[in-house]
């Protein structure tokens, strides 16, 4: 079992490292991630959302729906814990 797990882990790691070969270099300002979608968030944040902090403007405005999902996840987890751990105390006296 341990051996199997180890083999699975090594294969997964090897595939992941194989994939990094074609990645843009670390901290490259010309990488697609830095040039395709994100520049607008920085350049237009003041104009469109009046917030100097770009992270805040993306979190709460551009991708605000994700944040709604995030709060829902927390709510779900809270109710899940109550559901799992709540015990009826009727029998104890």
């Amino acid at each position: 079992m341990r051996i199997l797990a180890l083999i699975a882990v090594i294969i997964t790691g090897a595939i992941l490292i194989y994939g990094t070969q074609d990645m843009p270099d670390w901290a490259d300002p010309q990488s697609p991630a830095s040039t395709h979608v994100s520049p607008r968030y920085i350049e237009k944040t003041l104009e469109e959302t009046a917030t100097p902090n770009a992270v805040t403007s993306v979190l709460a405005d551009y991708r605000g729906y994700d944040t709604l999902g995030e709060t829902t996840v927390i709510f779900t987890a809270g109710v899940c814990c109550i559901l799992i751990l709540r015990i009826r105390r009727r029998h104890r006296k």
Binding site: G69, T72, V73, T76, C80
Partner: peptide, 14 residues
């Protein structure tokens, strides 16, 4: 991904 996790967490608990 976010909604997948909402559904999964609910399923684990149920």
């Amino acid at each position: 991904y976010v909604f997948l996790e909402i559904a999964s967490l609910a399923a684990y608990a149920l």
